[in-house]
Design a protein around this nucleic acid. Structure first.
Lengths: 272, 272
DNA sequence: GCAAAAGTGTTTCGTTTACACCCATGC
DNA sequence: GCATGGGTGTAAACGAAACACTTTTGC
């Protein structure tokens, strides 16, 4: 019994098999959190089928790459994104999900920070949509989005994935709004703060300074007024409107990388 | 631009494609709980590659079935099992995981009750192995088993999957031992009982009878001695040794189907 | 000065944990 | 009778939920 396939260079259909084969694609649902909204990236299809409709970035898996590598490659090619986190969603294998031929897709979901979002990548070829305002999608991508949202909501309960959606420095109320946007619930401001601080996953972005005269000076030098401070940092701080808003500005925190890795490992103890 | 493939009946390799295609298989990790141990079903491979070695039941996915249908079909063909529960584990797509050609596999995991386990299915072609005593496995099935165990442990924390591994009627200590075997921890007997009863997911297998004289007679009639009772029920009750063991026999419970379905839906509130 | 946003502390309540005692069975 | 396994109750401890007050900022 010989091989089950043959390669015939130059033939119209050079890849020939004893048994029928199906196509394998990857699709990637990319989330970000911007403007106080959870958003997904969609690309407009430039070719049939579903030409002109919105879909997730993806494409056929090559022979020399794993599914994860394929998903990341397509992502780079179509959106220039390099996500900080990527997870497998599952396989979607409905028989007629692609009109061309039998195709199954391996779906992934990825989280990116607003600062990673490159401004004008192919202009109107790719765009972010709030998850509660999604246009009709090609293929079975509506079903895939639904699964991605469910998985994100499941994951964020017990894994510190929220931080992958925020910039490196953020306030606790920012983080809380992210959780509330994803889970669709409301938390008590004070309980949320205490819980997240007790978990040890955060560290203060500005080191704590003893309340003496010298530090007062140092403080007022490095942070003249909060609005001016932010104006220096980022012209228009993506994601959360820091200008033109009332109220006391929140203290900045960043991830405690060590605790973060620990909690990614053993499920940690950060339940919301 | 025409089609991307052609069918040439009678040719040695009748399925011909413009682009290279990979094989797609399904594999199924089947768990049961028997003899106070968590076990998986393995089949001995009858053909190359890895002929004679142990592997999970599975095979190539057909064009006219979804991945789930394919996994269930292979299961029926190779093990005559019809699991009460099946869930997707994920895709394994290492490039060299199959020596024949590029093959990705869609892995599933399924739970069966000991009573569903047919005794001599193909004798030494299929066998149950305790998860802590597994022979070397074909392909990357060791990796798949690892993922399956992790998923089972994750799932059982928040989903009532444990009951799919037990027979219809069981005692609470039985259930506790199952949880302990899967999670590798120990629970306080009394707290476990209270928690599981408070969840409402169990109902008593024998209806509660008011403590009056009549019921005393009825009780002693329907349940002469506990060991005799079990002897009538099942000649050799699979899984848990009910004969030749000391101690008071536990009360029998069964699933409250309604609560069970509810908890499968919205995650419920059964955390261990 | 006022409204809005954010930081901090306290009291209350329910759940979980730890532990003690009693009953039923096999040997 | 004793060891083993199983059923039931209770007090202590911990964490979650509810709630009040103060500070900082924009207008």
């Amino acid at each position: 019994m010989g091989k089950n396939y043959a390669y015939v260079p130059g033939a119209e259909f050079p890849f020939q098999y004893k048994y029928e084969h199906m196509g394998v694609t990857t699709d990637c649902v990319i989330f970000t959190y911007e403007d106080r909204k959870l958003k997904v990236l969609l690309v407009r299809r430039g070719a049939e089928p579903y030409k002109g409709e919105w879909a997730f970035p993806g494409g056929f898996l090559r022979m020399d790459e794993t599914a994860e590598q394929g998903a990341l490659r397509e992502l780079r090619e179509e959106t220039a994104l390099w996500p900080s986190s990527i997870g497998q969603l599952g396989v979607f294998s409905d028989i007629d999900r692609d009109p061309r031929e039998r195709v199954i897709t391996i779906a992934w979901y990825a989280l990116v920070k607003p600062s990673e979002v490159v401004g004008g990548d192919d202009a109107d070829e790719a765009a972010w949509f709030p998850v509660d305002d999604i246009p009709p999608l090609a293929f079975d991508h509506g079903q895939i989005l639904k699964a991605a949202l469910e998985k994100l909501r499941r994951d964020i309960h017990f894994q510190p994935v929220g931080f992958d959606l925020l910039d490196d420095e953020f306030t606790i109320p920012d983080l809380q709004r992210l959780y509330e946007a994803i889970l669709g619930v409301e938390f008590d401001r004070r309980n949320f703060q205490r819980k997240i601080l007790a978990s040890g996953i955060l560290e203060e972005a500005e080191p704590v300074i003893e309340n003496d005269f010298l530090s007062q000076i140092h403080f007022s030098k490095s942070r003249p007024t909060t609005s001016a401070f932010f104006a220096m940092e980022e012209p228009v701080p993506e994601g959360m409107p820091r200008k033109g808003r009332q109220g006391r500005p929140g203290n900045l925190f960043r991830l405690n990388r060590k605790r973060y890795e620990e909690m990614k490992e053993d499920g940690g103890k950060l339940e919301f």
